[in-house]
């Protein structure tokens, strides 16, 4: 029972990271209807920036904040420089652009920082918290994720800028007619998504190790989480992320072992999607004839 509980709680820690990344995906999806396949690699790259700073002697939290800010800028620049050009392109063209960004970030990270795995420090001590079920570190990961999600919620719910971004995501033409600078809102969305991704990257890197490929699998889980929750629903993305984290851990521990857990987790998700094609909390498709 104790081991089971531990698996569930450890799953929640991973799930919190998937949830954050899934939220970043949903944010870009809502305004552009594209899934950013490069989100994971962007986050990985951000994590390397943090690692480089910490390695150079910068205190953890200063490096953390600088990384989040730098990632925000990178996100904005990518939107303005690359994504804007394919705004009206067919969906598969955009997919190829995302793949291009993915391989570029991956390759550049490997080139600058080498492909050898690195230890990424955690700001939290590793001793157990409240008995043997969860380490302070895992609890810290969950706590940071919850904090990020709460801040985002407050931002979107209560600030004029958040409102402008929501309006833009829902109806760009109407937003423009209200005087909102729609182009900047999209860039801002990319910046925010990149910043959230950076937090997720730094959290997961302290659970696993840091290497250029560390987020490819995580991104797949995040996409699955976003789809499972209903791709246009931020709340669903968070629930989906947590559910997948737990599911993955339990599968790995009790059912199929770590080798096949990715496959099985995906199979389960696809099974769910076949019965609920718009995800657990997604809106039903309405097709205009």
């Amino acid at each position: 029972m104790e081991a089971f509980l531990h698996q569930v709680l450890a799953g929640l820690a991973n799930g919190a990271v998937y949830a954050s990344l899934a939220l970043a995906l949903v944010m870009i999806y809502q305004s552009t209807h594209h899934i950013n396949f490069a989100q994971g690699e962007m986050a990985m790259f951000s994590t390397y920036l943090a690692w480089a700073m910490i390695n150079a002697g910068v205190p953890y939290w200063l490096a953390f904040v600088s990384t989040v800010l730098a990632s925000f800028v990178i996100g904005v620049v990518i939107e303005r420089a690359v994504i804007r050009r394919v705004a009206n392109a067919p969906v598969l063209t955009v997919v190829v652009v995302f793949i291009a960004l993915l391989v570029i970030f991956n390759s550049v990270a490997g080139w600058i920082f080498s492909y050898t795995i690195k230890v990424f420090p955690s700001p939290f001590p590793s001793q157990p918290l409240f008995g043997p079920y969860i380490s302070t570190h895992e609890a810290g990961v969950v706590g940071i994720s919850v904090l990020v999600l709460t801040l985002l919620y407050l931002f979107f719910r209560f600030t004029p800028l958040g409102l402008a971004m929501r309006a833009t995501a829902e109806n760009p033409v109407s937003a423009r007619l209200a005087g909102i600078r729609v182009g900047w809102m999209l860039a801002l969305g990319w910046g925010l998504a990149a910043a959230i991704g950076a937090v997720a990257g730094m959290m997961i890197a302290s659970i696993v190790y840091l290497d250029p490929n560390m987020l490819s699998g995580v991104l797949l889980y995040a996409i699955a989480a976003a789809l499972l929750g209903g791709i246009d629903n931020p709340f669903g993305a968070v629930v989906g992320g947590l559910a997948i984290g737990v599911l993955e851990n339990l599968m790995g521990a009790y059912v199929v072992g770590t080798e096949l857990k990715l496959t099985v987790a995906l199979a389960v998700i696809i099974g769910v999607l076949i019965f609920r094609p718009t995800g657990l909390f997604g809106r039903a498709f309405v097709t205009r004839v």
Binding site: P160, L163, A164, R166, N171, S174, L177, A178, G179
Partner: peptide, 30 residues
């Protein structure tokens, strides 16, 4: 728009997922 031209478009352009009050706040956002 910022020079003072407001457009009530065909199809009304309502932000369906926002509340009535939020719709009005979007109108005054500039």
């Amino acid at each position: 728009v910022r020079l003072g031209v407001a457009h009530v478009p065909d199809g009304r352009g309502t932000f369906l997922n926002l509340s009535t009050e939020e719709n009005l706040r979007v109108g005054a956002i500039t």
